[in-house]
Design a protein around this nucleic acid. Structure first.
Lengths: 183, 183
DNA sequence: CTATAATTTCAGTAATTACTGAAAATTCAG
DNA sequence: CTGAATTTTCAGTAATTACTGAAATTATAG
């Protein structure tokens, strides 16, 4: 299978970007290929299109699976496995955010919590704990909030976004309303 | 200089986490050390505390500088350079988000925009462009919105967060108010 | 300026991570 | 079951990235 120049460019860009995150080039490219491909692809087709060894593709698909970024299906009269990227881009975003939270944020929060609760006698440790608390609170705040937003439907979100910085205004408004209704 | 076990653990954790992001272990550890240290440290102290070569520390500091995550200062009667992590955790978060946007999001958006505007004749490319458009719009949406939130003061943000999922309710409320005021 | 302290650069090497091909394991049609 | 098709594993190797020590550069006190 030969990719069109358009897909080619997309795939290569994703490969490069992938390596800036923890994800390696191969995995990035496989994902990109699946993402822009309308029909499901099997491992051989992927290996062929990207010029990777079959085993490399197998490993890459495993990795993507662990990120829950692929869907597996079978075609009639063909026992090979076919892969696609999930359709709904918003769902993909959620999945990715979820997975990163699990792997990166949660362990850090737990480490910070533990560290903060340890007995600290010397001033260095006291200061370190203060800093860790600040970090912990920020991460927790952003995460909690993100979780909320996460659940919103794309339409609601678009609406929210359009409001942009007016969200502050809205907050003020809310406070005033409270006063009125509390009268 | 010897770190306390508390700082030790924090620094090591950050080293590991760093390597999950694009940032390498050394850089992660140096940052963590600066973050929990009350007084500024010079490169030799860092090298000593983390057991890295002096030149490795020099490179690590350069990298951190490029992320705008360190502050440089001089102490009286000492010509060595001393480093700290900025105080305000919220500011740190902003800086980091900004820098990541510049390095990772912006190039991707621009690639996507270009790709979408290319002439596509065959159905594969049509489909690929549709998918790229979806991705582009999602990223743009999240980024724009993030930029807005970004500007808010921590207090406002905390308030917003406390509201949690009620933000949807608030949106509905806003619509009703519009109707009222438009009467 | 000069001498020395401090920092950076960089070529060489170490460590890590990615990738391959061959072999093993699994799956499933007949 | 059997055997061919398919997928996975994994030891070896390639490629990449990280790190060091020595040398070069830069900065500054005197």
């Amino acid at each position: 299978m030969n990719m069109t120049p358009l897909s080619q460019d997309f795939v290569l860009h994703f490969g490069e970007m992938g390596s800036r995150w923890g994800i390696n080039r191969t995995v990035g490219q496989i994902y990109a290929l699946l993402y822009v491909s309308e029909r499901p692809l099997n491992a051989d087709e992927i290996a062929d299109a990207l010029q990777f060894s079959r085993s490399n593709v197998s490993m890459g698909l495993k990795e993507l699976e662990s990120w829950r970024l692929t869907k597996l299906q079978h075609l009639p009269n063909d026992r090979r496995e076919y892969f696609t990227a999930p359709e709904d881009i918003w769902a993909i975003f959620r999945t990715l955010a979820d997975e990163r939270r699990k792997r990166e944020i949660d362990p850090t929060l737990s480490m910070l919590r533990d560290a903060i609760l340890r007995g600290a006698t010397n001033p260095e440790d006291k200061y370190a704990q203060k800093r860790m608390k600040e970090m912990h609170d920020l991460i927790e705040m952003v995460t909690l909030w993100f979780n909320e937003v996460h659940r919103l439907e794309p339409d609601t979100l678009k609406q929210l976004m359009k409001m942009g910085s007016k969200v502050t205004k809205l907050l003020e408004m809310k406070d005033k309303l409270k006063i009125v209704s509390g009268k």
